[in-house]
Structures are given as structure tokens and as C-alpha cells.
Design a protein around this nucleic acid. Sequence first.
DNA 1: TGTACATCAGTGAACGCGCGTTCACTGATGTAC
DNA 2: TGTACATCAGTGAACGCGCGTTCACTGATGTAC
Lengths: 203, 203
Amino acid sequence: MDLPTKKDLQRDDLRTRLIDAAEGRIASQGLTGLKARDVTGDAGCALGALYNVFEDLDDLIIHVSSRTLKKMGSSLAATQEKGLTPKQALAALAQGYVTFALNNRTLWSALFNHRLPQGRQVPDWHLADHAALIKQIVTPLALLRPDLTTDDLHLRARTLFAAVHGVVLLALEGRFVGAPQDKIGTEVAALVDAMTRGLADAR
Amino acid sequence: MDLPTKKDLQRDDLRTRLIDAAEGRIASQGLTGLKARDVTGDAGCALGALYNVFEDLDDLIIHVSSRTLKKMGSSLAATQEKGLTPKQALAALAQGYVTFALNNRTLWSALFNHRLPQGRQVPDWHLADHAALIKQIVTPLALLRPDLTTDDLHLRARTLFAAVHGVVLLALEGRFVGAPQDKIGTEVAALVDAMTRGLADAR
DNA sequence: TGTACATCAGTGAACGCGCGTTCACTGATGTAC
DNA sequence: TGTACATCAGTGAACGCGCGTTCACTGATGTAC
């Protein structure tokens, strides 16, 4: 239980500088444009320093993704104004997701495109970030579907998320069969409306 | 208008052998496991021969994807038994999609994960493969929604496809927030049902 | 507080390797007469 | 049909390069007395 030493502080500082730099690079060049030399250059340290402070590049990327998930969580939370019906709350979450993806395209897509090398596991603390996201959907959905068990509720929340995600994904990728980008909002709204239509809209 | 010479035939033969080999490698090792040396080895030709017959590896991959899309199209067409209502037809298409993705995981994911280098365009003949897929959804959807214009119909068909795709994608990736795999079928069914619920189900 | 020693973070040149692509050569196929 | 020449598909060793990661060295920070 000692106070943090100067070394500790410097280490923490370097970590955040590296995460900042990696985040910036992913935001501007995309995940595939992320190079160790660029990141360390931006962070103002030597190439080797990265490996003192992170396991490797993948580890650093996971830290960026964790930060992105937290930012997304805050954006979604901000959509949940007081007095929304559960159905309105879900619609607002979906629109919040669309907005976040549009405003943070490369960081958002890094979330889904980052692949760990064969056999490497995603750390638990990062999985918890995912769970927190689903929790935000479960809360209003539970009010709408008091008939469902907790498990079914989580399952349906993930399906709802995945469906909205799919629409945003194919639209933003711009190739394949996606919708035009200016239609994403209304299409997602129609989708969520359909998936919550005819359900008791209790407070 | 000459008859194909022996050279022509050999060239065509090599092309199909290479596509076969690449397809097999993608099926077994995934897109990232595809190496020029493996493919040419499997096809029984020298490394350099690939570049006589295809532009480069990307070109070869596009040919594999085109074949995959055609196979998917046939699978989906096979679900369209006589006498299905439009709503049933759409449900059957969705289940067909789930089945195809499950049975051809790596080829299916190659369809969406293959990225062309900066500035390179997908050839038109391959875009036509995509359009044919959407057409299969538009046909029954048009019966269900006679009120929509052609454009809106296509837009809604793409949204329906994207939503189903998202659910399958996140479930099959197994990480992030996907549904468990044995639940994909019922979740997709619920999704499609919701998106077609309450609509006139005319023949 | 001051000095001597130990530790370990920071450095960046060098390593290593994977792998797509090229290219000079050869030999089979096609053409002209 | 046969011969001489031209073409161009097939070959695989070599090229090139990008880039993550290491590692021997240095110098700043921490510890003991």
C-alpha cells in the first residue's frame, strides 16, 4: 500500500499517452493503418517502450476498444431522458447507436474488426465492457416484456442489438447490400418499431 | 469466333483449378489463411502461374466470392417451395440464410471480410451477384407491401437482409454480444416475424 | 542530508520472417509455308 | 504431312518490403546505510 512512486506515475502517463496515440491513429487511419512506429512516435517515446508497458500491439488495441465501448455507453446513456416510455427508450438507444457509429466510424469498426491471434483470449475486464452495453438494452426491454425470463430477456436484447448493428454495418461499409447512409436512421427506426410493436408499453 | 484452342482450354482449366484450390483453402483456413503458395500448390501449378491467369490474389478471391454468392443464391431459391405465402417465403429465405452461413462459415465470412486495397473497385460483374441476392427478397416482399415504391421496396429488402445478417454475424463470431448459436434460428424467426407482422399476407 | 549501489524504464538499431509479386528462362503450342 | 519459326504459358528462385518484436546498452529513479 505504498504511495505511487515517480516511476509509477511515469508508467501510467506513458500508458495513457500510448492509448491516446493509438486511438488517434485508429480514428484517422483505421485499425489496419495502426503501426507500432507511428503510435510510439505520436506518444513521444521509443519503439521499444511500447513493450515495457503493454503486452504487445493487440493488448494496446484492446485498451483502445475498451475506451471506445465506455464512450459508446455514455452516449447511449445520454439518450435516456426522463419520462420516456420503454419503447421510446429503445428507439432512442438505437438512434444513439447509429449516431455514435456515424461519428466514430473507424473506432466503432475497430471494435468488431480486431481479431486476436489464434488461441489468445479476450481479457475478462474487456468482456465486462460488452456486458454493460447489453444491460442498457435489457433495462427498458424488461419493462416492455415482463413475461420473459432474465435469460430470454438478455437473448432478445442481444438480437435487437445485433439486428440494428447489422443495418448500420452494411450501410457504413458502403459495399455489398447496405442501405444508403442518409436512410440509416429511418430504417433502424422502422426495424426497432417492428421489433417492439404491439407490445404493452407500460411505464 | 474461332474454336477454343488447346491453350484456351488449358487456361480455363487452370483458372477453375485455382478457384477450386482457393475456395478449399478459404473453407478450411479462412480468408486470412489464404496464401498464394498454398493455392498454387493445391492447384498443381507454379507460383507464378497464378499471375498469368488472375490479376493478383484479390482478383482470385473475388472469383471465389462470386461462386459463394451463387451457391448462396441457389440455397435460398431452394427454400421457395410452391404455395408459400409471402410472409412464409421471407421466413424461409431467412432460415435458408442462417443455414447457409452455418454450413459455409468461412466462405460466408470471406464474403464480408475481404477488403480491396485502397482505391481498387469491385468489378461490376460481382456487384451484379449482390443485386441478384436482394432481388430474391424483393419478390415476396413486393407481394406483402404493394404500397411501397420500387425504391422503398429495395431499401426495405436490404434492411431486412442486414438485420438478419447482423444477428447471424454476431452469433457466429462468438465474441462480443452475439446470441448462442443454437438460438440463431429462433431469434431470426422472431426478427423476421416482427418485421412482417400485421402486414396483409396476400397471395 | 549525502553517497554508493541496485534496479528497471527508456532507447532505437537490428532481427526475422512472412509472403505477394516479379522476371529471366524453357518448353509446349500454334502458325506459315 | 512436315519443317522452321514465333508466341506465350509455365516455372520457381529471388526480390523487396513492411513491420512486429527483441535486446544489449544508458541513464534516471529508488533504496540502504
